[in-house]
Nucleic acid binder design. Structure first.
Lengths: 305, 305
DNA sequence: TACGTCTATAGGCAAAACCTATCGCGATTA
DNA sequence: TAATCGCGATAGGTTTTGCCTATAGACGTA
């Protein structure tokens, strides 16, 4: 029993005439007769009472048509659903991101994505970069917004943006008061050798970046406080407890009460590479591709605004 | 999109392994890969995320499987339903019969039929022989229990039984009182020349039969009363208003209060030919065949009991 | 590094769905 | 009453397609 046969039978039932039905089905009439005979033989049941001048449904035929129509309808629904998914009118992706980026970057991305693809549900999964790598490698997220370097070998990635890293100091800090903070030539890392650093806890990529930058400048940072929360860090800086480094997109907007002063660093300006990571060898869904595209677009607007 | 492809996809989803799925489907693994690729290409959607060591469903795949499973289930239901009808576990027939036969004969047939084929619904349609012929010719009944001769040229028929026609007289009638009523040699039609006849109204086959028998015996019957109802006729006879002819299976049982006396007629015993009539060229359903078979069996038991 | 296991691809064969031509039947028309 | 028309069924040949075996290519494991 084939779908084609159901459709043929339904058409005959609708037309009550083999030749006309065959025409509508774009096949020759003998083919239709053949297929119907075959179907009836397989079912062991006569669907149509027919002679040369009349075609009408048997009891079995009526029961058959009811169910056959339902099946054909469901097939159409299936087709439509797949078409919707294929055309990105429907879908679902799970995106991983670090809490910092999640709260600062994605609020710009998600509305744009929702506007372009209103039918695609996005589930956000926030965790530390370390955990995210594992979750992404296990397929718990489709894609994750992370920063290099990645430790999981089963992850592939694709660059999204280079995000400059700025210095955050208390408002009354000597560097904040020194001439015009927007003047060319930023702060040199060497100038920070004796400053008290406030720093992220283990497991977050930015901690290592900060320490590495200090070492490249020739000293070990003097760490006076640690927190797992970037927001806390900035509040502590604003309160005068020390200084830290902050990725530019994560820098607090003016909405906040306690605001540190952000100063660019001197050439070579350090930056972190933001990437979209995904499981190696896994072809990303169209929805994921679309999300990445939107992400890129949004980052471009943010960077050049 | 073919049913086979849905089944293949469902099997892969269940096994999460192409080779094993192919084995369960009794096809070679490459055929399975081919069919799935073809399906995915047609849908424009990837159903499985797969590499050499892992097969897992995509979002689209999960949605697909839900609907595909429903469709396969409905196909199974359709198959079962047709199988039921084919095996006479289910069905429906509309049987036509004259009211007289309907009330006297079919009460014996229907219970037997119900016992043999409990799933087949029988709809009974009672009307005059004249109307029944028309209804049967128009397909309003599948088969009809009628007596010869038939007037509709588009009807075919098949004999069921020869039903002897008896004489019905009042209990105190001279013929009823004459010697042993069960003795060999019945009443001769000639003896009834001057008897008052009670007779069925126009449109019922038995009226013509009675008149013809009288004419063959050389006289016109003297008609004193007409009714469209055979039961009324017999009551009138029992009440002494006249005599009539009654098909043997229609003769009243002893249950009734007013009972005529039934006497056999002399050789050649007149009889009416009961037949099952159906539309010419129309192949009867299995249910109809089964009904005819049950009818024959029941008639045999009645005749020889 | 070699091997076993997995899915994908290539090429050939056989089943089956389709086609055209034609039959045979019944209804309609000349 | 014969001729014609329209219908579904049948016959025979062609094309499509689903299946097969053989093998490639990628990955994980010993």
């Amino acid at each position: 029993m084939e779908l084609r046969q159901l459709q043929y039978a339904l058409m005959i039932a609708a037309e009550r005439n083999f030749s006309r039905a065959a025409e509508k089905l774009h096949i020759a009439q003998p083919s239709l007769s053949q297929q119907l005979s075959k179907l009836e033989k397989e079912l062991g049941v006569l669907l149509f009472q027919r002679n040369t001048s009349n075609v009408e449904l048997t009891h079995a035929g009526r029961e058959f048509m009811k169910r056959a129509q339902r099946i054909i309808d469901e097939m159409d629904l299936l087709r439509v659903e797949m078409e919707d998914i294929s055309q990105l009118r429907k879908g679902r992706i799970t995106v991983g991101s670090m809490p910092i980026t999640g709260s600062h970057l994605l609020p710009h991305v998600l509305p744009a994505f929702r506007a372009d693809y209103p039918g695609i549900d996005v589930t956000l999964l926030e965790d530390t970069s370390h955990n995210l790598e594992r979750l992404t490698a296990n397929g718990k997220t489709d894609i994750s917004l992370l920063s290099l370097p990645l430790n999981e070998p089963t992850l592939d990635y694709e660059p999204i943006a280079d995000e400059p890293i700025d210095l955050a100091v208390p408002p009354n800090h000597r560097l904040a008061l020194r001439s015009d903070p927007n003047a060319p030539g930023g702060v040199d890392m060497q100038e920070l050798e004796n400053e008290p650093f406030i720093i992220l806890k283990q497991g977050q990529g930015l901690r290592k970046t900060l320490i590495d930058l200090c070492r490249q400048a020739g000293y070990e940072p003097q760490i006076v406080f640690e927190s797992s929360n970037m927001e806390t860090l900035q509040s502590l800086v604003a309160a005068g407890m020390g200084i830290t480094l902050v990725p530019r997109f994560v820098a607090r907007s003016k909405r906040s009460e306690l605001l540190p002063v952000y100063l660019p660093l001197a050439d070579p300006v350090p930056y972190r590479k933001l990437v979209i990571a995904y499981r190696k060898g896994r072809s990303r869904s169209k929805a994921a591709e679309a999300f990445i595209e939107t992400l890129r677009g949004t980052m471009n607007r943010l960077t050049h605004a």
